[in-house]
Write a protein that binds this DNA or RNA. Structure first.
Length: 576
RNA sequence: CGGAGUAUAGCGCAGUUGGUAGCGCACUUGGUUUGGGACCAAGGGGUCACAGGUUCAAGUCCUGUUACUCCGACCA
């Protein structure tokens, strides 16, 4: 491609509404333009890169035996009613009506359509297992779009759905996908981790997320570098560090602690370590959108409640931190700021977190204004409570891995892929059964597997850039080589450059020839910005020697080589 | 939805106590220049987000609305 015949509007300055590097660079390097918040138009270069990512995903999916389909973006309401998700999805589902007032949704994901498809077309166990997928747009009315295409209202996603006869076969399908995902993200040049994730409301048995580690990540990941344990903090476990110095068998004692409404206040007033205190949280539990009961959650003072874990434990439709102090004080007869677990049962369900379940000599609220208990022994002093794991793993302060007791690390991640064992959730909703070999009915097991294609492209750029611009991994690059023609005035030089250009073109390097009548510095800046892996500089002095200069974008390493050897050198470089 | 901020040329921004809009880049023309975002000269480009209001006079003051950005809540 000759640049004068291409459409690559680059920007010298960062657009004022972009904050993170990938977003800034995708705009500056002419990949896309914003249409509206969370909606972006891809320009030729951005589309070429997106298609590249898409094709790598497609190749590996096909290689893993999945079969590509394409299903409608408009989902009729009836399909979503069958699975219940017309109601489960709240405002993030885009809903619309046609002229006959029929309801539709813009596809946010597609379990329903694929399950229906299998039900309609497959009746025998002989045709299983099967894995169908598509690479198509998804729509979600995000409460808050941000970071360019990292979280948009519309995005390209690969979604696959497997159907198996039994759990063993499902596991095989799942492992196949997992393996394919490792191949895909490696080919995309990403630095990623596969972490255990919440299967939550989907009710599945297993779920893992593929995360790109990045400071801008919206997820927190807990990692053990020793044994490889890695989990989303939503479900991560850890062994908390307990100070050993204060584990005595003190008697329960009520102490005066005036005006100490926060844990920090109490502990500094009593000169105690926060790790030896108990924090109380009151949650409202909802069922069918009605308040069912309140739950008192007790956790170590320096930990936070993990609402995903709590919600899973309670099997509640919805839980919410009870906001009204008045409601708490009226219903529990306690004083907010001094809430504790002694004497409140059976007015309220009491849940004790694992971080304190075995502890003694703790500080805890007394339910009486301005008084706390000292020397609390959970087992000795509390009654009618349940122990549960509801802490939010912190991955710091000496927290140890539950598997190997090594120190844990915490990092931020962006979710780029998610694999799920769905089990029989959708299959049952759609009444999907097969005839088994012995003539009996069998209910199949389902899995689903997603990859955010647009988000992956953004994540690749987020991980591969420097101050000058994008540094594309070779596999993802559309143009493998950019030819920087130093002067358009010298006909001999132009001819020389064109020869190099056609040579590279014939050998599948898809070169981009910068034939604009611009000064060299201008061309170098743009070449660095758009991230093409190799730059070939065509200058007068070197031409007279029959030579060209080859620059690697990433290392900026320069090599002067005979023009005749360019192909050979490049071929060697990329084979490494 | 709560909190904070922004909206002036294609992009990035300035615009003072209210007096009829400017800078840099980009663009057009001519010239010089040509290995890391050149220089000179001459041009073109604005419903100052929108709607009201105050005023002789509003980019500027007041009220409302919208859009966008950031933090939070949310995210099968």
């Amino acid at each position: 491609m000759k640049l004068t015949e291409y459409f690559l509007p680059t920007l010298k300055e960062n657009p004022s509404d972009a904050f993170i590097p990938s977003h800034q660079l995708m705009l500056r390097a002419g990949l896309m333009r914003k249409t509206s918040s969370g909606l972006y138009s891809y320009l030729p270069y951005g589309l070429a890169l997106l298609l590249k990512v898409e094709s790598i995903v497609r190749e590996e999916m096909n290689d893993a035996g999945a079969l590509e389909c394409k299903i409608p973006l408009l989902i009729p309401k009836e399909l979503l009613i069958k699975s219940g998700r017309w109601y489960v999805f709240k405002s993030e589902l885009f809903r619309l009506k046609n002229r006959s007032e029929n309801d539709y949704a813009l596809s946010p994901t597609n379990e329903e359509n694929f399950t229906q498809l299998i039900k309609d077309e497959i009746a025998s166990y002989k045709e299983l297992p099967i894995n169908l997928y598509q690479i198509n747009y998804k729509f979600r009315d995000e409460i808050r779009s941000r970071f360019g295409v990292m979280r948009g209202k519309e995005f390209l996603m690969k979604d696959a759905y497997s159907f198996d006869l039994d759990e063993v076969s499902l596991d095989e399908s799942y492992q196949k996908m997992k393996k394919a995902y490792f191949k895909i993200f490696n080919r995309l040049g990403m630095n990623f981790v596969c972490v255990k994730a919440d299967s939550g409301a989907m009710g599945g048995d297993a779920s893992e997320e593929f995360m790109v580690t990045s400071a801008i990540g919206e997820e927190t990941i807990i990692i053990c570098e020793k044994c490889g344990y890695a989990a989303n903090s939503e479900i991560a476990q850890e062994i908390p560090f307990h100070p050993s110095s204060e584990r005595g068998d003190d008697d329960l004692e009520k102490v005066f602690t005036p005006n100490t409404k926060t844990i920090k206040d109490v502990c500094s007033y009593l000169k105690a370590d926060v790790k030896n205190s108990v924090k109380a949280r009151v949650y409202s539990i909802y069922e069918d959108e009605h308040l069912k009961e309140l739950a008192l959650v007790l956790i170590r003072g320096d930990y936070e409640v993990n609402e995903v874990k709590l919600s899973n434990f309670l099997q509640a439709d919805e839980i919410k931190l009870t906001e009204s102090d008045l409601e708490i004080e009226e219903k529990l007869g306690t004083a907010v700021g001094f809430i504790g677990g002694i004497g409140l049962a059976p007015k309220v369900k009491i849940i004790v977190d694992e971080t304190i379940a075995e502890r003694k000599n703790l500080i805890m609220g007394s339910n009486e204004k301005d008084y706390h208990y000292k020397g609390v022994d959970i087992k000795r002093d509390l009654k009618n409570y349940q122990v549960a794991e509801i802490y939010l793993a912190k991955g710091d302060e000496g927290a140890k891995c539950v598997k190997c007791q090594a120190d844990l690390k915490k990092t931020k991640g962006v979710e780029i892929g998610h694999i799920f064992k769905l089990g029989r959730k959708y299959v049952k909703d759609f009444d999907l059964t097969f005839k088994n070999a012995d003539g009996s009915e069998i209910i199949p097991m389902m899995g689903c597997y997603g990859i955010g294609v647009t988000r992956s492209l953004a994540a690749i750029i987020e991980q591969n850039h420097d101050e000058e611009g994008i540094i594309l991994p070779y596999n993802v690059a559309h143009f493998k080589v950019v030819i920087l023609l130093m002067s358009m005035k010298d006909e001999e030089l132009v001819d020389f450059a064109e020869k190099v250009y056609f040579d590279l073109k014939d050998n599948h390097f898809n070169p981009l020839l910068d034939d604009r009548d611009e000064r060299p510095g201008f061309k170098f800046k743009d070449a660095n910005l758009i991230g093409v892996p190799y730059q070939v500089v065509i200058g007068k002095k070197n031409m007279r020697l029959g030579k060209v200069e080859l620059i690697a974008r990433k290392s900026q390493e320069k090599k002067l080589i005979p023009a005749s050897e360019l192909l050979k050198v490049l071929t060697e470089l990329i084979s490494k």
